[in-house]
Simulated scan of single mutants.
Amino acid sequence: MNPIKNYLTFVFFVSLIFSAGAQPKNKLHFNADGTFKIAQFTDIHYKPGVAESEPSLELIKYILETEKPDLAVFTGDIVTGRPSADGWKAVLAPVVEAGVPFALTLGNHDDEHDLSRQQIRELLKTFPGYVGKKPDAKSDFGDYLVKVNAENKEKSALLWFLDSNAYSTLDSVKGYGWFSHDQVNWYRKQSRKNAQKSGEKLPALAYFHIPLPEYKTAFDSEAKKKGQRNEDECSPDINTGMFTAMLFEGDVMGTFVGHDHVNDYIVNHHGIGLAYGRWSGGKTTYGDLQHGSRIVVLEKGKRQFKTWMRLRDGQLVDEIIFPDDLK
């Protein structure tokens, strides 16, 4: 069977479900109690037709039922087998069925199969609830910005979804990819464009896949931290200044990545929380931590966030308020 044809059939029936029930939100909004909850899933490494992938789907269902997030975020290395379209259908089915909006950034393994990065982005747009946007013409890397709206616009928040790319594009440099200067410049321009009239920046979070070089610097320092480091940070050898840009622009409160499956820490680096999500995969890849999801809760009008990890066995671990608990 043609996987694309199968997927289109799936979308048709899901559309019928949504037409009969609750529609996913086109725009994100703070709740009546002033909160907005995000569940991060990372490094699922789903392989269609492989039984070892199924626990990750059960995890997604469990997290959505238990935490009831306002947004699900996938931070790369989600589908790592063929046919990719079937994989995306399977991974996103629990999210679509729950009517939860979702956003996504790609990892270094997502486009190594039968779909390019651009084809994956086009495919994602056909799923109900996807809040991703077409990349800006000046940042054709999959980078996009989503606002969490409040009645008072000055109490809104921003969510950055950035493509940290895959591998080095220079023969003289080995290892993983990095943010281009175009991406850094795009972020800075968009940050200033979305500033309030007073010049004050809206509080923001940033999600991407590969940790910045500053992750290692921060963890090795005396800075306060929470969580585990069980492997060296697999960051790029080239530092193009994305962290520095975020520090000077002053909107990003925390960055959330994956990539390193057995790290789950958050560390305070000059007032920005550098955090890992909790590995969400099954036995199709490495990792001996119990899988789960990092939860983040924003509060309207506050430059802080609460975060914890919800594990598959029900445990809630490493709950903190940032930055207060890591000052």
Rank of each mutant, 00 (worst) to 15 (best):
P128G: 07
K134F: 03
T126M: 06
K134H: 05
G107W: 02
V100F: 01
H113I: 13
E122M: 14
L123V: 10
S116H: 07
I120R: 03
L115I: 09
D136H: 13
T126I: 06
F102E: 00
L104R: 04
L106Y: 01
R121I: 02
H109K: 12
A137I: 12
R117H: 09
L106S: 02
P135F: 06
H113G: 02
V100Y: 00
K125Q: 11
F102D: 00
K134P: 01
H113C: 05
L104Y: 13
F127P: 00
E112H: 13
K125D: 02
N108V: 11
D111I: 10
L124Y: 13
L115A: 06
R121G: 02
I120F: 02
R121P: 00
L124Q: 09
G129P: 03
L123T: 06
N108H: 13
T105D: 01
Y130G: 01
N108G: 07
D136L: 03
L123F: 10
F102M: 05
Y130V: 06
Y130L: 04
Y130E: 03
Q118E: 14
N108C: 11
T126Y: 02
N108F: 10
G99L: 07
T105H: 04
S116L: 12
R117D: 05
A103C: 15
V100D: 00
L115R: 11
V131T: 08
V131S: 04
D114T: 15
T126C: 00
G132R: 13
N108P: 03
K134W: 04
L106E: 01
R117K: 15
P128M: 10
I120K: 02
L124V: 13
R117Y: 06
K125T: 08
N108S: 14
G99T: 12
F102K: 09
D114H: 12
F102A: 06
P101G: 09
L115D: 01
R121M: 09
T126G: 02
R117S: 10
A137W: 08
H109W: 12
T126N: 05
